[in-house]
């Protein structure tokens, strides 16, 4: 009999292969693209307004709030088993 480890690996791999064509969540991908653009905007803002502490912090806060709104409910399920 093949080891239980090998069979478990094979079962998980075939499940993963069956899921692969689904790709990633479209809404999350769109949220991520929007965040990337916001990152670029903030970097530009901080570069050109480095001495204006208040506006830089506001730009950072808006960026991170967007990210939090998009992704906080999903969280991370960490290493497995």
């Amino acid at each position: 009999m093949e080891s239980v480890f090998k069979r478990a690996q094979g079962k998980k791999l075939s499940h993963r292969k069956s899921q692969e064509p689904n790709g990633v969540c479209q809404k999350s991908e769109a949220d991520s693209k929007q965040l990337m653009q916001q990152f670029q905007d903030v970097i530009k803002h901080v570069e050109t307004n480095a001495e204006d502490e208040g506006s830089c912090k506001d730009a950072l806060r808006r960026l991170y709030t967007s990210h939090e709104t998009s992704f906080s409910a999903k969280k991370v399920t960490g290493p497995h088993e």
Binding site: S28, S32, K33, L35, M36, F39, V42, I43, L60
Partner: peptide, 10 residues
């Protein structure tokens, strides 16, 4: 502060 970013979900 962010220096640069790359990647993105996909």
């Amino acid at each position: 502060v962010p220096y640069t970013v790359f990647g993105g979900l996909g």
